[in-house]
Design a protein around this nucleic acid. Sequence first.
DNA 1: TTTAGTGCAAAATCTTTGCAGGGTA
DNA 2: TACCCTGCAAAGATTTTGCACTAAA
Lengths: 149, 149
Amino acid sequence: MGHGYKYYKGSDRKVLQAVLRDKDFYSTEGRLQLLSFLKKASAPVSVPEVTKQIGKNLVEANVYRALEALADAGVLARSDIRRGGAHYEYPHSHHHHIVCSNCGHTEEVEDCGGKSMERRAFRNSESFAEVRTHALEFFGLCRACAHAR
Amino acid sequence: MGHGYKYYKGSDRKVLQAVLRDKDFYSTEGRLQLLSFLKKASAPVSVPEVTKQIGKNLVEANVYRALEALADAGVLARSDIRRGGAHYEYPHSHHHHIVCSNCGHTEEVEDCGGKSMERRAFRNSESFAEVRTHALEFFGLCRACAHAR
DNA sequence: TTTAGTGCAAAATCTTTGCAGGGTA
DNA sequence: TACCCTGCAAAGATTTTGCACTAAA
């Protein structure tokens, strides 16, 4: 069995181009900007945020289309973080998040044994042909918000 | 340590009234209808869906307020299920869902060792004072959609 | 040249907010 | 009575859609 990733050589831009081609996406300027931006971001970002930060080169409607497609293809990870809509991030590693219910502060959580959970969920399911992915989020109170009570 | 639930005697309505009072909510007609509806539902439901189904007795703005408050108090469970906004359900038991990415078909998944995951996430976190809950969803393809390819 | 991606504009959905009046403890 | 809850109305945020045009393969 393979190792599950590809070794891309070259500059960041070329890496991202290769990622896109590998998934049968046209390698366009807009998508390269999106991926590049998300690759540098340190937390999941919402569509309006991405759009605003990148500037006028991209239209919001299209960012929705692009990020959703990239997430469906597994190039990006989507998390529903209970703060106004879907958030996306570049999955440097497989992980999840703890989110402060009060202020939205986010911290990464290392892997949870996700693949084995997926396998178990699939085995016990009655009507599913495959399980492709999962989403896991923890919610609580960060120390700052806990103090402010 | 306790067993984590209360034994309520009496009719459904009285049970729900007790649940509400127990959490310091006023026991109002609107909330009783919401809880009663969700208790019978077989899958997580969105706010617009609940509102439409229950009828004119409730205003959407209020359903948002009520369900969010009840979820925060632990009376309901919220799942962000990648289908247009938050969904709520009456937690007959602690469980999660597998959702078909194609058609939205939903099936329940038994518990995942959630409490121990929460404890582990909390222990490894750097800036959190507590972890209260978690959300976990699996995504895949149901058999019907897999065949239709 | 064939197919996919994009900008633009409009609409549909989902959600929040403020406030005055009515219900619950 | 005191406080919470609700309806109403309005605004804000998020997301989807159609279509003509452009860019990538």
